[in-house]
């Protein structure tokens, strides 16, 4: 304790008192009080120089800390800007692809609408498009909305150090989608991404990817089907049970609503470069080779 007491009580450097004592004993001519007049100018300048040095030290330290901070935030802002730019560009391209698909279907309808064979083909295309998910559709159904916990870090069931607790994960979304299919959904879209047979739902870090596209919460799952039956079957099934468990354990909020007129976009037709229909030759000419003269 004596060390701490010493720190608290003896705050003034001993040497000041010592010097004062030795000065007064050596030469009582100059009493140890406020008489700087008698000092040579060089001696009074020294403390000033030291103070300038202290100021410079402080200024440099402040500057240095600020520079380091600016470096860090500048880099982060740069990366964030890049992400925003790329996302905007990709959104634009996706929109353009959707527009072109619409255009193609209009032209297709016109080209096939003339004779009986064309009409039959058009009907076939429509049913195939409905089944494969490449055709935009509308109809009654239900909307399941999932969201992260209000405060992800402090959810009840959260284990310390697990940032994913309190967040909707890919597995939750998979369970919901599978539950909806099992309940008789005919078409499903997550945040406007239509699901096809080839659409994967998976996690990458803290983000959930649907068909390679990162989505952010809230996740809105639209499913077209018999609304009443869908709702009952879904909430009764594994998907619904999972949502209820998530709600009570991790405080993940969810809602299920019926909708009379849901409208789902079509998905891009998947590229199948290797798969050919069975019974045909493997090196059958592809569509665009056929079209060229």
């Amino acid at each position: 304790m004596s060390l701490l007491v010493d720190i608290m009580t003896n705050t003034l450097d001993e040497s000041y008192a010592e010097r004062a004592r030795s000065r007064s004993s050596a030469g009582p001519v100059e009493p140890a009080d406020r008489t700087p007049v008698a000092r040579p100018w060089r001696r009074s300048l020294l403390p000033v120089v030291v103070l300038v040095a202290l100021g410079m030290l402080t200024g440099t330290a402040v500057k240095q800390v600020r520079a380091r901070e600016a470096e860090g935030t500048g880099l982060r802002a740069d990366l964030a800007q890049q992400v925003r730019d790329r996302t905007a560009a990709s959104d634009e391209l996706a929109q353009r692809a959707q527009d072109l698909r619409d255009e193609v279907s209009v032209v297709q309808e016109q080209a096939l609408g003339n004779d009986a064979l064309g009409k039959r083909l058009a009907g076939q295309l429509t049913s195939l498009g409905l089944a494969s998910g490449t055709l935009a559709v509308r109809g009654p159904g239900i909307v399941v909305t999932l969201d992260d916990a209000p405060d992800p870090g402090t959810a009840d069931g959260a284990r310390p150090g697990n940032a994913l607790d309190g967040r909707v994960q890919d597995r939750d979304l998979q369970a919901v989608v599978n539950g909806l299919w099992a309940a008789g959904a005919e078409a499903i879209a997550v945040n406007g991404q239509r699901l096809t047979a080839l659409t994967a739902i998976r996690g990458a870090g803290e983000a959930v990817l649907v068909g390679l596209r990162p989505l952010s919460p809230p996740y809105v799952v639209q499913a077209i089907g018999d609304a009443k039956e869908l709702e009952v079957e879904f909430l009764d099934g594994r998907g619904g049970r999972r949502l209820i468990t998530n709600m009570s354990v991790y405080r993940l909020p969810f809602t299920v609503e019926r909708g009379d007129r849901l409208s789902l976009p079509g998905a891009a037709a998947p590229d199948l470069p290797a798969a050919v229909p069975r019974g045909t030759n493997a090196n059958v000419p592809s569509a665009d080779e056929e079209g060229s003269p």
Binding site: L12, D13, A17, L46, L54
Partner: peptide
């Protein structure tokens, strides 16, 4: 350095300031 400066100000007010002690401290 701030500690040294505050010590010096106090010594000055006590009337026992000494520039050499200040610089050395």
């Amino acid at each position: 350095a701030l500690d040294a400066v505050f010590g010096a100000i106090r010594a000055q007010l006590d009337g026992i300031f000494d520039d050499r002690v200040f610089v050395v401290s």
